[in-house]
Amino acid sequence: MSVSSPGSGQPFPNNWRKPPFIKNPLLRWSIIIGAAIYLALAFGTMDVNWQRAAEGLPRGQRFLAAFFPPNFSDNLGVMWDGIFESIWMAIISTIAGIALSIPIGLGAAKNLAPKWVYLLNRGIIGGSRTFPEVILAIFAVKLFGFGPFAGFVALSIGTIGFYAKLLAEDIENMSATQAEAIKATGASWFQWINYAIQPQVMPRMIGLSVYRLDINFRESAVVGIVGGGGIGATLNTAFERYEFDTAAAILLIIIAIVMALEYTSGFLRKYVQ
């Protein structure tokens, strides 16, 4: 192809269409039509009581009006109890969850563990990831009775699904040459973990543990709804008693704490990395 020579002299087209994103027209149209059919069916089968929903607007207005002004004073003692319970729950379940996650995460890394250990640990991770914390909490409440202990167990199990999975993936993605170099010095297995693996995965893992603390606090607000203690229980009670102004206050406090946590975790992660 010549750069400097003038063009080839062929006639140039006067119109141009953008080539479609999906080149195969059959596939393209079946995706479009399929999506249309799905949406039609989804809306069609959505069992909505429109009359009730239409009433929703004035109800919503009254509902929102009942939120204002948020009432921080009437149930102050109960609210503080709930909040501290949530914070303790979040801290303990993060610590316990991470302590359990470390052996499970090591075992679930393909490059460290033998096949059967790998499959076993991946199974544990998969199981705890599948079920939302709330479902775990329902069973924990059945087993351990109402209160923060049930919430603690549910959140710890939830933490394993999150933390062990990311730890395992991080180990699988680490630099193999560094690991090899330490192994070549004749280090034992524990020395190898300590010198080759730990320095590589540590910064990210510290960041993730703060992030998980943040998640656990947020989740602690919902495990309470099914009896797992914490601020969620207080919130649920407020709703059941139609004390919406108290509920509004609780929601605002949750938002404020989450914002503070998010800010700290962002700061900490920057500091660690």
């Binding site: 914070i87 303790w88 729950m89 801290i91 303990i92 923060p148």
Partner: peptide
């Protein structure tokens, strides 16, 4: 934190 939880258990 553990103390806070265990006393309600």
């Amino acid at each position: 934190a553990w103390q806070g939880i265990s006393e309600k258990t």
